[in-house]
């Protein structure tokens, strides 16, 4: 069976004696090395063409209204209802078929972590973020972020996240660099990413 064949080949390739496992040098800036700077996050998100809104908790619905007022949006099962204005028709995701989700205008979710240095939002499928499909098919994604979810660097984010959950790292709207290596927004994912940072 090929499992034994391959493992045997690899052991033969390495020969003996084998070096003991070595701890890699980690002299780079690890988790906790840097203080969070929200302005850096805003700068990096904006640089990759996400739209950033900053507001208090009571104003989330007002901002969602600005972005998605009059539209139909899918929402994860446990999105706080107070985030949604009356002007938005919310369709909760109770295992909606893909075609139904694709026909909706937008999606509103929370987030798990955000990385300031790279302008990245990470979703982990918690009930206020929902299945991966709902943030993929609609063309507008509004993501609500609490400031205590923001970390400084990638190592901070890796330390906070649970690898056993499905993770989606999002840095700006869908883009491609495939034509002459210029980043162009808008291929298959949402072409509009709004991040609401809630103080």
């Amino acid at each position: 069976m090929s499992r034994e064949l391959i493992l045997g080949r690899l052991r033969a390739a390495l020969g003996a004696p084998r070096p003991a496992p070595a701890d890699p040098p980690r002299a780079y800036r690890g988790a906790g090395a840097l203080a969070v700077d929200l302005d850096v996050l805003v700068d990096r998100l904006t640089d990759y063409r996400a739209t950033v809104h900053r507001c208090g908790d009571a104003d989330i619905a007002r901002v969602v209204d600005q972005v998605l007022g009059g539209r139909q949006v899918v929402v994860p099962p446990e999105l706080p209802r107070r985030w949604l204005p009356d002007s938005v028709r919310a369709v909760p995701d109770d295992d909606l078929p893909a075609a139904r989700i694709a026909a909706l205008d937008g999606v509103v979710t929370a987030a798990a972590v955000a990385v300031a240095e790279t302008g990245t939002v990470v979703l982990d499928g918690a009930p206020d973020q929902g299945r991966r499909i709902i943030t993929l098919l609609p063309d507008v994604h509004v993501c609500v972020l609490r400031t205590d979810q923001v970390v400084a660097t990638v190592p901070d984010a890796v330390a906070r996240l649970d690898p056993h959950r499905p993770l989606t790292w999002i840095s700006g709207p869908s883009a491609t660099s495939d034509i002459e290596l210029n980043r162009v927004e808008g291929v298959h994912g949402p072409r509009n990413l709004h991040v609401i940072i809630v103080a």
Binding site: Y48, T118, P166, L167, S171, S177
Partner: peptide, 11 residues
């Protein structure tokens, strides 16, 4: 890029 637009991880 500082980070590519999407990274998916699944277990």
């Amino acid at each position: 890029e500082r980070m590519n637009p999407y990274t998916s991880m699944w277990t």
